[in-house]
Design a binder for these strands. Structure first.
Lengths: 130, 130, 130, 130
DNA sequence: GTGGTCTAGACCACA
DNA sequence: GTGGTCTAGACCACG
């Protein structure tokens, strides 16, 4: 889990995004427990209050459910919901980019090229990370 | 110029983005004056201080130069710089979407579909606006 | 921290200069927090918005990094950068004086005398302040 | 006469400084006329109102005296006053630089070095201009 | 508690 | 008319 404290996107959201994507990807399956607040706090050296806030967000989204004294568990429809949410985020990012391109008068061909280039770059990033 | 005061992206940044795209698209050419702070303030009903902040950003980016008592003028290399910046923003949006998709384990085919769908949707939006 | 509200140099710049010099002088070291906006505002009786503007400048210069909810911290290379910037400011002031002297046809000997005199005067000022 | 419309120092002040230095340097001697507002305006492509403001400043300083329908003439004590003013400006610039250096904890030796270096640089600039 | 944004309204300097 | 600075006071997001 990569936390970037310099980023403009708030830390609690970074954590929530990360776990949401993990649920969507099947790392945590329905019925399984996600890492405890304390565990995540220790691993990321993020304030427990901040982690708590991320988990609240996930619970409000219905992806996980807190069980007192036990932990937070992925709900039955959590995996599906996480996928949907993630796909929406992806679509929103694409739409935003395309809208900006149109507004700036960037030609369609260049937009397509930019997309393919971004694709290659991200794949390369991933490969390097491994 | 569409200002969304509920958006998470600050108003001054929305204004700056808007004018940057207009410069990139050739609406304001090098040597020409962009609308005065007061004019933009009136048109958007945004406080002049906020508009000023947006314009300050553009000046820091080197797209525009302020001349007291005269106005703010697009610099010689402003058009090029605005295009570059706009393209970077587009690429960044795409990369962000692709990264999120990979993290969520969304298959490549689905990502491509999402992109094409976003494309169609944005084009439709544009058509409706006209 | 001496703020001169009558000076032609804007207050926010005076504050930025002051803190930049303090960082250069090692008062605030890398990793350490500079006084909060509110604290500086209270101490100087300058409006928080104005202080914020000064701090924004320092962040743009890369001397300091803002972390929401925590404060603003001197960056690793902040100390070096502050020194460099301060030295540049000193050189610029000297160059400006020398250029003016040449333009006014003031003889070299007189310029040197003026420099030594300024030196003595400033040292005396400093002694009085203590 | 070099006018820098991008500079932070206002144009009317640039013009006034320039003429003041010329008077100090003996380019315009007591009793002689300085260039008319129209002439300066044409040569610098600066708005006549702005030139007028510069000339007003010089008159208030007692360096020149307007004679209706004839022009502006250097006063008897104008040369001396211009020299004094110019020297003051030089001293002020030096004092400002030295003060900044002290505040930033720059050691004396480095300040002296910076001065000598600035000296050499400015001399070189002048040589290149010719 | 921290920083970030916005509004309202004022005043100044410049051309 | 133009841009630039400042204050006052408010609200938000973050940790």
């Amino acid at each position: 889990m990569n936390i970037d404290s310099t980023s403009a996107v708030p830390i609690f959201r970074q954590i929530a995004d990360d776990i949401r994507q993990a649920i969507a990807a099947g790392v945590y399956k329905p019925g399984e427990m996600i890492p405890s607040i304390r565990a995540t706090s220790l691993k990321t050296t993020v304030n427990p209050n901040t982690v708590q806030r991320a988990y609240e967000l996930l619970e409000r989204e219905g992806l996980v459910r807190a069980r007192k004294g036990l932990g937070m568990f992925v709900t039955t429809r959590g995996a599906r919901a996480a996928q949907t949410r993630s796909e929406e985020a992806v679509s929103a990012a694409f739409a935003q980019g395309i809208r900006a391109a149109l507004a700036a008068g960037i030609p369609s061909t260049k937009v397509m090229t930019a997309f393919r280039k971004a694709w290659r770059n991200v794949r390369k990033e991933e490969r390097l990370k491994t």
